[in-house]
Amino acid sequence: MDNLKKVRELIRKNGLDGFLVTNPTNIYYLTGFKGLLSADREAYLVLAKAPAFITARLYQSEAKAVRKNGLQIAIAKERNEMLKLAINKLQKCAKVGFEKNNLLFGEYEELKQGLLAKLTATENFIENLRVIKTEEEINKIEKAQIISQKAFKEILKTLKVGQTEAEIAHNLLSIIHSLGGEGLAFESIVASGPNSGRPHHKTGSRKISKGEILLLDFGARYQNYHADLSRTIFIGKANPEHKKIYHHVKNAQQKAIKKISHGIKSNMAFRAANDHFKGERLEKYFLHGLGHGIGLEIHEEPYLRPSRETTLQNNMVFSVEPGLYFPWGGVRIEDLVVIKNGRAKVLGKTQDKIIEV
């Protein structure tokens, strides 16, 4: 069953006879259409008795490819007329669902005024389908991750004391392109010295120095699917304290990966890592969740957090990224896993040894 049929069946089961898809990632997932600026409204997807894809004239060539999915195509002369076409396609519906996290209030008001149907807000309606990946999707994510791992090996050869974080980030992007990546999955985090103690540091002009930690968090994008990789590098010889922290983070990751299996709750994976830190009285330095799903977006379900109880299932793909953060810096190690045959399988290879350059 293709994605469009799955969603239409889900709509029926939820007592809806119409649905308006506005999230551009979900539109791509269902139709293959990808616009240029996701911040702008470039298309609507109407799922009713006669499903329809609606866009503006500037995308009429791209709309021809969407036609292959058996959708009706409606082309608006201007973007601000697209929603009127969508409303027209939903006129015969009695109960219409919409994506509450991706509909502007002005759009909601226009829907309410233009339809007699009851409007029903939904959350993660299509995202819950996306969380279980197909073999093709898993292969694309793995390819993106392998490109990222190869890029890491190449960037190691270029590192020199005195380089700025921004220079390293620039070089990393060039390497990813040279290896077949479409670009970055997100803006790379290059954090040196005390900056590595900030989990979401913004790459800047600080120069790397001997005796410090350099933390890289980045990912390639391949055929619209994302990778995510974090590696901790020691510039020069690692001191005993830093080595000890590195090994604790690595052990926490290994314990979490071993715990992950089909059927467990996502917070149990978090606990496996956090319990290791608790045993070493380090848990207060673990400042974030253990991981997140990945695919067409860099952050998707499932989330491996203490409060989340998502049931992990075969063909889910997500990161496992424990970290410890201090005033002098931090250590984070991140890899992607997929649940296959009930167990976690790492995409690509893990980095088990300490890296000193």
Rank of each mutant, 00 (worst) to 15 (best):
G18I: 10
A121V: 03
E127Q: 09
E182A: 11
I54T: 05
K34M: 07
F277V: 04
G295R: 01
P302Y: 06
G279Q: 08
K278E: 14
F326L: 06
T122I: 06
L103T: 15
R221M: 15
I235P: 10
P194R: 10
R231M: 14
A185N: 08
K259H: 09
G279P: 01
D40W: 05
L36D: 01
S148D: 08
K349L: 13
A273F: 06
I333S: 04
Q253L: 15
K100A: 14
G295S: 08
Q149A: 09
A39F: 10
L215V: 13
G114C: 10
G114A: 12
L36Y: 00
L115N: 04
R57Q: 12
V66N: 09
I257H: 06
T120I: 15
E309K: 06
L324E: 09
K202V: 10
S188Q: 01
N23T: 03
S261V: 09
I75K: 13
L184Y: 12
K258R: 11
K153S: 09
V346S: 07
E42A: 00
K202I: 14
K353P: 03
E137W: 02
E42H: 00
F152C: 03
H248E: 15
I189R: 07
E9L: 03
L215F: 13
L296S: 02
N101C: 07
A227W: 14
N239R: 13
S178I: 05
R57G: 10
H226C: 15
I11C: 05
Y44Q: 06
I298T: 14
K95M: 05
N26M: 02
L47C: 01
P199W: 14
R343G: 04
L83F: 08
A269D: 09
V66E: 08
N341R: 14
E301F: 03
Q163W: 01
V337W: 07
I235T: 09
I298C: 05
P194A: 07
I355E: 12
I264K: 07
H262P: 03
A166L: 00
F286G: 01
N3W: 00
A52I: 10
N88H: 14
N224W: 15
V357F: 14
C93R: 10
S192M: 05
G114Y: 11
T350R: 12
K140W: 05
I132V: 13
P51S: 04
E109N: 10
R8N: 03
E334D: 12
N69D: 02
V338P: 01
Y59E: 04
K353Q: 15
K160I: 06
S188I: 00
E109T: 11
K258T: 13
G106H: 04
G183M: 11
K258M: 08
V7H: 00
L214H: 10
A76T: 13
Q254V: 06
G180D: 14
R221N: 10
R231S: 14
H292N: 03
T22Y: 04
M1E: 09
G204L: 00
I294T: 10
R206K: 05
K349P: 02
H242C: 12
E356H: 04
V338E: 06
G236C: 09
G330Q: 03
K258L: 14
L347V: 09
M316P: 00
N69H: 04
L119A: 05
Y28S: 01
T134H: 04
E321Y: 01
G263Q: 09
L36I: 02
I73P: 06
E167Q: 01
I141V: 15
H177L: 14
N239Q: 14
G197L: 13
F19M: 08
E107V: 07
L115P: 00
E241G: 04
